[in-house]
Each structure stands twice: as structure tokens, then as C-alpha cells.
Design a protein around this nucleic acid. Structure first.
Length: 328
DNA sequence: AATTCGGGCAACCGCATCTCC
DNA sequence: TGGAGATGCGGTTGCCCGAAT
């Protein structure tokens, strides 16, 4: 009857992670790099299953994760991408490097679903760029889709025959290819957490503030890691430049305000600039690498990030990834 | 002040896919 | 090439917290 669940073992702890567990996990990953999750519980002594460790890392502890409010831009992107890709949260998350699939999924389920439903029922539909897509008759959009697909196919062929790096702003690319360097523990380790010293400092911090609950502490831990990372030159030996840390940890919630005032292009350019190898190293951990490869990215992304094109291409929104992929 | 209720989110579960032997 | 194990992914659950009563 299939494989038994990995977490059936007696003695495997479930539920919220404690700050201490977080530290153990982070320091282990600092030394060994993410991956080989099977061995993590054994080597760290954590009473967690490997899955749990991986999830905790990818959804919470991994540096570069942006937490807090979603910007209008992000919201819009999620709506469009969801319309296009469906509930493929990992694929959607690949377009939002600072967000985890879990975050996006939760945001969709708790906020956007409601928002869209509200708009759908409350408005005539003409000014609802995304919702109106579903109102386009199938015959209509199928015809236009065929044209679009043909154009996309051509664009893709051209893009593939040209320099692969030049046709698209990197920030617009999902993390579908392994553009990240492989993990090398000794030199990159400092980017996970600044040092064991810093981790112990964090522990002290928690001990001093016992009133906070573990989950919230974990959140502060994330920030604390970022903070200590930025200030690592104080104590910990680090091979990463302050700029590197800046880019690595720049996706905090305070960033959202700034990005909101940016134009779409500016924001994406900024995101591109922030995709340093160090940053990407972590993003690679939770980002899918296969699914979105099939999308005719050039045209699709142009459409996706072109504000003015939203209305004009709304019928394309109804196209599923399978539909488009099948045509290639 | 106590209780209820609903929203938000972290984590779990199980299936799918990938990788390795 | 097939099977077993590892990892990825999406759906769902359950807990926590704040607002309402």
C-alpha cells in the first residue's frame, strides 16, 4: 500500500519549531549546505523528520525570504500568474524570488480569492482586467490564442537561437535553470548565518525575551539573522562583502514600500540586480526547475509584466500552461 | 473580563516526480 | 530497466491571535 509516511516514527516531533531547533538547523546548514535532508535529523539530533526540516528551511529560515505585506505589484503578478498557471504555486513563486510557494498559496487562499470574488460579484466586470478574462467566450480566445501561440513559438525559437542571456531581463526569468553556483560549504557558509558566535548571541537574545512565543521568535530570528548578517564584519569572519549581505537580505518587509513606488520595469530591474549568486543560492533551494521551462517566456513575460497589455491580452490569461506547452 | 468567532499562517500529509543503484 | 528511496509540490489542518459581542 505504498510507502509509509516518513513521519510515522515514534519520537518524531511535530508542531511549531522552537528557536533552539531553528538555530540547530541553521547552523547545520551553515556548515553543510542545504540538501541531503534525510541526514539532517540524524546529524543534528533534531527530533524532526527530514521533510519537516526541509520545509522549515525553505519556508522560513532560508535567507532572502521577504515576509510581510504583499505589494500591489506582487499581488497583481500572483493574480495573473494564477490565472495563467493555475494552482502551481511553486511555478508562481519562481517569478517572485523573495516569496515562498507556501506564502503565495496562503496569500491567495486568504486574501486574493476573496478579493477577486468580491470584485466579481460587485463590479460589472469591464474594468476587471483579470476577471473579465473568464468572460471571454472560448471560441474567441481560442482563435486569438492560436495566433498568440504561433507568435510565442516564433519568439521562443528566436530567443533560443540568440544569446540566451540577452533576450530577457533576468529578473523576469523564473528560476528554472541552474544559474546558481553549487553550494560550497566553507566559503558560502557565512551567508546562512553569520557565525556560531552570532547564533549564540541570538540565543541570548531569546533568553532575554522569554515573553515572545516561539513562532514569533522565529520570525525575529529571521530578522536577527539578517541583521547579524549585515553586521558580520564586527565579529565573525566572513568572505561575503557587506554588499553581498545587503543583496542577500535585502528582501525584507521594508522593501515593499520602496518597490510599490517603482514602475514595473524598475522593480524588475531591481529584482534582477538583487539576484546575486549568493542570493540565488538560497532561492534555488525551493524553486522549481522544470515546469515553467515549457512556457514561451519571452512573449508571455512581456505580456505578464506589461501593464498596458493586461487588457489587450486578457484572453491569454485563460490559457493554461498545459495548453501552451502542448502546442510546442 | 470572559467568551466566541473568524482570519491568517505555519506545518503536516500524501501523492507525484526525480534520482540513484 | 525496474525498484527503492529522496525530494518536491499542492491541499489541508490546526493553532494562535485579535476583533466582536
Amino acid at each position: 500500500m505504498g510507502r509509509p509516511p516518513c513521519c510515522d516514527k515514534i519520537g518524531v516531533k511535530k508542531g511549531p519549531w522552537t528557536p533552539e531547533e531553528d538555530i540547530i538547523l541553521v547552523s547545520y546548514i551553515q556548515d553543510h549546505g542545504p540538501g541531503n535532508w534525510r541526514s539532517v535529523p540524524t546529524n543534528t539530533g533534531l527530533l524532526r523528520c527530514s521533510k519537516s526540516c526541509r520545509l522549515r528551511w525553505t519556508n522560513y529560515l532560508r535567507p532572502g525570504i521577504k515576509r510581510g505585506n504583499f505589494t500591489d505589484l506582487e499581488e497583481k503578478m500572483i493574480i495573473h500568474l494564477q490565472a495563467l498557471l493555475g494552482n502551481r504555486w511553486a511555478a508562481i513563486a519562481s517569478y517572485l524570488p523573495q516569496r515562498t510557494d507556501n506564502d503565495i498559496k496562503n496569500y491567495w487562499n486568504t486574501h486574493l480569492k476573496k478579493k477577486l470574488r468580491k470584485l466579481q460579484t460587485g463590479v460589472d466586470g469591464h474594468n476587471q482586467d483579470v476577471l473579465s478574462a473568464s468572460q471571454v467566450s472560448k471560441g474567441q480566445w481560442e482563435r486569438r490564442l492560436q495566433t498568440d501561440i504561433h507568435m510565442a513559438k516564433q519568439a521562443l525559437c528566436e530567443a533560443l537561437s540568440l544569446d540566451k542571456t540577452s533576450s530577457l531581463p533576468a529578473g523576469l526569468k523564473p528560476n528554472t535553470t541552474n544559474i546558481y553556483p553549487p553550494y560550497t560549504a566553507p566559503s558560502q557558509g557565512s551567508t546562512y548565518a553569520s557565525s556560531a558566535e552570532n547564533i549564540s548571541r541570538l540565543l541570548e537574545k531569546w533568553i532575554k525575551n522569554p515573553s515572545k512565543k516561539p513562532q514569533k521568535n522565529s520570525d525575529s530570528f529571521n530578522n536577527a539573522v539578517a541583521t547579524t548578517g549585515s553586521n558580520c564584519s564586527e565579529g565573525a569572519a566572513s568572505t561575503t562583502t557587506p554588499e553581498g549581505f545587503d543583496s542577500l537580505f535585502s528582501f525584507n518587509s521594508s522593501n515593499s514600500d520602496a518597490s510599490q513606488s517603482m514602475s514595473l520595469d524598475e522593480t524588475m530591474t531591481t529584482a534582477t540586480a538583487n539576484l546575486t549568486p549568493e542570493t540565488s543560492l538560497f532561492q534555488d533551494e525551493s524553486k522549481p526547475t522544470s515546469e515553467t521551462n515549457q512556457v514561451p517566456l519571452t512573449l508571455l513575460e512581456k505580456w505578464l509584466f506589461d501593464d498596458g497589455a493586461v487588457q489587450g491580452n486578457e484572453d491569454l490569461i485563460n490559457m493554461s500552461l498545459e495548453d501552451s506547452a502542448a502546442l510546442f
